[in-house]
């Protein structure tokens, strides 16, 4: 994807080897977690990466932050080739890219106060003096809507929503440009979830942040995203502006995903839109990876990986059905 972007990811690939082939020493199993994934995010934009278990969305987030190393592909953030940075340069660069995870409880040191936790990034990067840090802490607590006295509390004294506010404050302690939100609101009860969603939107506006918003929840994604990339088994199957994805979903998987979400409308039941289970990302199906569950699958889908087809401005989907060159070979779409 050659369009201008603050974040530009091209051909990102990461496979994991599972053991050494088991007891009988067979072929080692390869998890194709992320396979040739490309996207870009403009400055100030929210790109949502959405998909179900095993689709690789979490790995994409970790790869962009270089918390795990890619096997192949290019990651450019603000013009810097992230994969080319040495350790010292990467450490400096990390001041600008941060992550908020699902339940920060596990990552909040139980013996540190909330204040110390939020200021830890400043300490690590030797930023400011005692007075400026105190001021920064007060500003951060206010930004995420926590009372000042919370600085002296410990993580176990906080509710899930409050802990997530701490996680966000810590992620913004330095001069963050890009925030990766990995299921950042998924573990929260709905009334608290709405508070954190609104908080994330407000600080994005106020701080001019760019979000890579990773989620399985289509309703939250609809609310948060400017653009959406739908992943299935390690690959992006459809990408486009939010409106296009929700109003004119093109890939059979995107359609199934949307159709499966329960509507808050009494009496309407989502019909099971796809049959069968999500295949394992270990040795995923050849050709189009969705073909085992796709109601339209034909011979070509079982053998040839579909290329992205441009449908409208910045809206592409990888499906043989949408490609005039191959659609004729498939049964007429229903």
């Amino acid at each position: 994807m050659a369009e201008d972007g603050f974040v530009r990811v091209d051909g990102l690939t990461r496979h994991f080897a599972l053991g050494a082939g088991g007891l009988l020493g067979g072929r080692p199993q390869i998890v194709r977690a992320v396979d040739d994934v490309s996207f870009s995010i403009r400055r100030g934009e929210t790109l949502a990466v959405v998909g179900e278990s095993g689709c690789g969305k979490t790995t994409v987030g970790r790869l962009v932050l270089r918390l795990i190393e890619a096997d192949a592909g290019r990651i450019e953030i603000g013009g810097t080739d992230i994969r080319a940075l040495d350790d010292a340069a990467l450490r400096r660069f990390r001041r600008r890219i941060q992550i908020v995870i699902q339940d920060p409880f596990g990552s909040l040191n139980p013996r540190m106060t909330i204040g110390a936790i939020i200021l830890e990034p400043l300490e690590v990067h030797r930023e400011g003096n005692a007075a400026s840090r105190r001021a920064r802490l007060a500003a951060l607590l206010e930004m995420v809507g926590l009372p000042a006295e919370f600085a002296a509390r410990f993580p176990h004294e906080l509710s899930g929503g409050q802990r997530q506010r701490v996680g966000i404050a810590r992620a913004l302690a330095l001069e963050t440009d890009l925030l990766v939100c990995d299921e950042a609101v998924s573990a929260l009860d709905v009334s608290v979830q709405a508070q954190i969603v609104n908080l994330l939107q407000r600080i994005k506006r106020e701080q001019g942040l760019t979000y890579l918003f990773i989620s399985h929840d289509m309703a939250i994604v609809r609310h948060m995203a400017d653009r959406i990339a739908v992943m299935y088994l390690g690959q992006i199957v459809e990408t486009g502006p939010k409106r296009a994805i929700f109003d004119a979903p093109a890939h059979p998987y995107t359609r199934a995903l949307l159709a499966s979400v329960p509507r808050s409308e009494p009496g309407t039941r989502p019909a099971p839109a796809v049959l069968g289970d999500i295949p394992s990302p270990i040795d995923p199906p050849p050709g189009c990876r969705f073909h085992t569950r796709c109601p339209h699958a034909g011979d070509i889908c079982r053998t040839v990986r579909p290329a992205p087809v441009a449908l409208a401005a910045a809206h592409t989907a990888s499906c043989h059905l949408l490609d005039p060159a191959t659609a004729a070979q498939l049964r007429s779409p229903s």
Binding site: G161, Q162, S191, A194, R263
Partner: peptide, 23 residues
């Protein structure tokens, strides 16, 4: 509040209604 704080998947809302505090 519970109904309104749940974002709908089939239409857009400007800002989610929230219930302050927690259970």
């Amino acid at each position: 509040g519970l109904i309104r704080s749940h974002p709908p998947v089939d239409r857009d809302v400007d800002e989610l209604a929230t219930i302050p505090g927690g259970v």
